[in-house]
Nucleic acid binder design. Structure first.
Lengths: 351, 351
DNA sequence: TATTCGTGAAGGAACGTTCCTGCACAAGGG
DNA sequence: CCCTTGTGCAGGAACGTTCCTTCACGAATA
């Protein structure tokens, strides 16, 4: 008795027995369905409340066929000692994804990026948003094969093959265009020796931006100046900047592709005896709102985590709920020009 | 035919039929259970692979009785237009929770903090971490009543009543002690006019710290100086600091309880013509690692999101998996003293 | 030769819901 | 008085697994 009492949750049939009705009646009464007189409905509810009945979520799910749960995984930095969510971009992306999902009535599951093979398939998901998949990502293929709708980038979906056309949707970025926008702007502002700080990750954003930078330099016969960080981290980042500025012919413009606190970077540059924008133009790829409150305000390149997440979730939910909709969305990064990247006298309109 | 073909996922029985065996055999073959000769096992696996069979996660869950899914909800800012996850503390807390959960083999669901009543009970969770519950929080009570183990703070659990002793575990903070530590430190460093910036949220950390500040001032016959922000936000925060420093008799120490970028705050103070720590001692409650890289480095009060999350998840998983374990953990905030809060000549040992 | 034993595999209950089908009964129309 | 219609509710299938029980059969033992 004490055994069954201890861990036996009260079920629908228990309520039915106690109320002297069938389980159909209980289910209908609690869900507001069926043809029941108010009296019966109320009576059943009383009994259910009295017994402390709570429906079993899993059983409901099985019956209903959907879980209203969306998975999110940032794959780019799989198997690194540090965690993607520590980066502002991913943090904002997951936050925005959560918000968007909730507005559609979906919960969000943060997925393991590593673990036993196929372990992600154990989660009862209605759809998945795979952020920055690695090349030939098995996760994308696994979910598509399991019939779970996926939003990821276009390349990953086409790699995954069959099932992708049916269940895959994509959200892509024009990384090349974004990088060129930055370099063109700096050149127009007078920069001739642009330096770039990026990370050596598999991060396709970094890889492609660095590639674009090489192309851009080659087209102009310039020498590329790049520092590649093995890992993100405040100290590594600042050290890289110190090293760059200590060169015999220091750069006259700096582009940071790795996340760094803009006011901190500005502070560091100041301590090195340089002045922004007089000695050095500065553009930061960052999501930190602090950039617009510094002196001078810092020009930023944002990858619009909020918009991206919203689009991804909309695409996913349309697919899940069987509505027609776009097959993908192409985003362009948002370059917000501020004083840190305009030489005095030729500042752009935007202060 | 095309209808059933289109959306009918291949099930265990389909594999069984195709392989000419029973579902038991298929289940055993795929799960490595039962007494099967290697030949049969391999044959079944071939057929399953050929049909593209993927087990249904929900059905498994129902059978197994557990989902290996943990819920996380930050309740403090329920029904505010902005989202808790935008704050560094909560962001780090959820990240750390995710990491800890994954290390135990659990996924994490970010829960809606608002929505139709009881909507959180629709999620198939093995346990829940309710961060900063509001007074008389229904979420804590609902989960406990549904037999779902909960980790939250001690007060919320005792309010929730029955079921709490059995299924509840707690993680508490010594807010009062932390606040006193800060004020005592500033007084020892020579401060006589301490100002505090906090938020008017239901945030128990802010409420209690402000209360402690009042007590602390009363004990010394000092006049409390407090600015309460209606909402967090970079602009509001900086405006509050400007207002404080513009007073006829400006404060000689500043304690910020709301999240703000330390280098940005320092920058703002500098632009107001004040110097840290000469004119103003500074202590920030923040999780931003940038604090130690500024000039001067900023004294911080951290609420140890990493440790808190790890402890909460350990407590939860112990309970779920039926292991004995602690009933709770009390944390004390981590005051890391740096140069920003030491008058020249009486700097503490820690640089 | 009759009995045990171990192996290989099938059948079916169970998990806890939802929902389709159907029955009994009362009221109303012909 | 019979047939229809509608109401109130019960029974049971289904969702797709896992796993307990049973069973057949060939080999080894008495």
């Amino acid at each position: 008795m004490s055994q069954s009492e201890r861990n036996a949750r009260v079920r629908l049939v228990d309520v039915a027995r106690a109320a002297g009705v069938s389980k159909t009646t209980v289910s209908d009464a609690l869900n507001g369905a069926g043809r029941l007189p108010a009296a019966t409905r109320e009576h059943v509810r009383q009994v259910a409340r009295g017994l402390g009945y709570r429906p079993n979520a899993t059983a409901r799910l099985l019956r209903r066929g959907h879980t209203r749960l969306l998975g999110v995984a940032a794959r780019e930095y799989v198997d690194t000692p540090w965690v993607y969510a520590d980066l502002a971009y991913f943090s904002q992306l997951t936050t925005a994804t959560t918000r968007a999902a909730l507005s559609h009535g979906y919960g969000v599951v943060l997925l393991p990026t590593s673990g036993p093979e196929d372990c992600w398939l154990d989660m009862p998901l209605d759809g998945v948003f795979v952020i920055d998949p690695v090349a030939g990502d098995p996760m994308v293929g696994d979910f598509l094969a399991a019939g779970v709708p996926v939003v990821s980038d276009r390349r990953a979906l086409s790699e995954a093959g069959s099932g992708a056309r049916e269940n895959g949707r994509w959200v892509d970025f024009d990384y090349d265009g974004a990088a060129r926008q930055v370099f063109d702007h700096l050149e127009a502002a007078g920069a001739r020796r642009i330096a770039v700080v990026a990370a050596t990750a598999t991060a396709c954003f970094h890889q492609r931006s660095v590639g674009t930078y090489h192309d851009w330099c080659a087209e102009r016969g310039r020498e590329p100046r790049i520092v590649l960080l093995p890992s993100p981290g405040v100290q590594q980042m600042l050290d890289a900047v110190r090293e760059l500025l200590a060169a015999d012919v220091p750069p006259d413009a700096l582009v940071t592709l790795v996340e760094v606190s803009p006011p901190l970077l500005l502070d560091t540059i100041r301590r090195l005896g340089r002045s922004v924008p007089d000695d050095l133009l500065l553009v930061c790829a960052t999501e930190d709102p602090a950039a617009s409150y510094t002196d001078p305000p810092v020009t930023t390149l944002s990858f619009l985590p909020g918009e991206t997440a919203r689009a991804a979730v909309d695409l996913l939910v349309d697919r899940i709920e069987g509505r027609a909709g776009d097959h993908g969305r192409l985003f362009s990064a948002d370059l917000r020009i501020r004083s840190s990247s305009a030489f005095p006298g030729r500042r752009p309109a935007l202060g």
